[in-house]
Write a protein that binds this DNA or RNA. Sequence first.
RNA 1: GCCCCCAUCGUCUAGUGGCCUAGGACAUAGCCCUCUCACGGCUAAGACAGGGGUUCGAGUCCCCUUGGGGGUACCA
Length: 515
Amino acid sequence: MVRTRFAPSPTGYLHIGGVRTALFNWLFARHHGGQFVLRIDDTDQGRNQPEALQPILDGFRWLGIDWDEGAEIGGPYGPYYQSERLDRYQSAVKTLLAKGLAYHDYATPDELKAEREAVEKEKRPYLPSRRWMAETDAERTRFESECRKSVVRLKMPREGTCRFHDRIRGDMAVAWNQETDHVIQRADGSCLYNLANVVDDFDMRITHVIRAEEHLSNTPRQIFIAQGLGYPLPEYAHVPFVAEPGSKNKLSKRKLAQYLKNPDFRSAYEHGQAIAAAVRLTTHADTFNPVIVDFYREVGYLPDAIVNYLLLLGWSLDDKTEFFTRAEMIAHFSLERVNKGAASFDVKKLRAFQERYMALESVERKTELVLPFLRNAKLIADPPSAEETARVAAIVRAAGERIKVAGDILDYAAFFQSDDEVIYDEKALNQHIRKPEAAALLRKLREQLATATFEVKALEDLALRFAAAEGVKLGAINQPLRVAVTGKAIGFGTYETLSLLGRERCLARIQRVVE
RNA sequence: GCCCCCAUCGUCUAGUGGCCUAGGACAUAGCCCUCUCACGGCUAAGACAGGGGUUCGAGUCCCCUUGGGGGUACCA
């Protein structure tokens, strides 16, 4: 039985790079009919867990990445929160100590520092001298009589080579003497990552450790621990990290200011901000930006688009397949086709996937997606009446493929606002309305519209006849009309716009604008 | 410093010694469609980091250099 895991820390937000790693774990498990475990890495005591964990779990659920065991649902190999597993780690430390594979180290930080600096001055690679190592009770008593405190360190081999196979990178070999004596337990009894990780993976019967490449260098020391504890070794697969837009640096949640210098990133960010502002969402730059999954949910992206994009960030099936249903992803995913090089995160390409997926959605589905945005922006009632919903559907239909993300419905706020709420774009006014001939034309047109049938075909006929009679191009009347009734120079077809708005509002708005 | 990993168009990638005058997608530019926008259609520009080998033949194998990343923490 294949079992994989992802172990997020409760940081309050779900990072795009983390999701990609989790997705690969999930796909691998599902492909093999195995299980996916969501373990919580909450060893950092400083943080308050429940609030910080919720957004992460919500994010995974929203994306449709479900877990068979772990946070909130439990399972047979729990607890799944590292903070509840201290006794397991401590007993592992005891075993390692008893086998002589670890030792108590009584060195003070200053002593260690001095030792290291001395060696570095001579330009020799540093390995601890083990001068303050205590392996017997007598030695411990002696050091403790000096009021020293001890940590537990791994007693790493100093000769030979650690060899292991990585499903993505191939055969690996690292000389043991490159490994320092890593601390596995602090003086206060708490345990460190390398130890905890190995113990958890064993306890949870993880068969395949699929994680980011920054852990590649940690692998030998973890193998040492696992072997010392008599655990079978899992298979390893180190996936490349997700890099920054336009660079090969690792994507970081802390470098938002820098990413905003990237025009694509910036425009995605601003687009999101505009939608958030319209729906009165209070945002924090820390959690509301295109590096965080929540951002996409708030703005109205489709989870399938994000997952499909992420799948292709470091993995490909062949030279042409781009779109995958979940079932297809699961059927085709393999570690062997994961790339070795880091892939940079491209918001524009993500957006392109979103556009393609959105175009596939039915009007009914898009209407559902869009309703919450209108409600939060107070443009429709909560809950919306059947009449309102039907009207939204009509507008969504008229919008065609113009609604790329659900939040884009807010571009069409003019359809929901009262006549005096409509905001007119200055540039559009200057270009299409504030010209003597345009205003005159609009007045004449308004007279005809007063008695017209407000249906697309009839309006089109009217416009055609009017244009011919006046000897102007169609654009010369359609453009000012659109601006007059929506406030914007861009939008969908003028006849659709007029018919959707209805005679009363159109006449009122034209009236307002020509005055 | 030492150790490890990585390297094809701006970006994601295909490529596993001859099928490569290097293919696709996103982005970009031009044209077409057109009442605006969006969609769509067509076209263009655009890459094997550099240098040595191996081989009849190298993007593909080996070495070096360069560049990027990671580890070397009482972070994960």
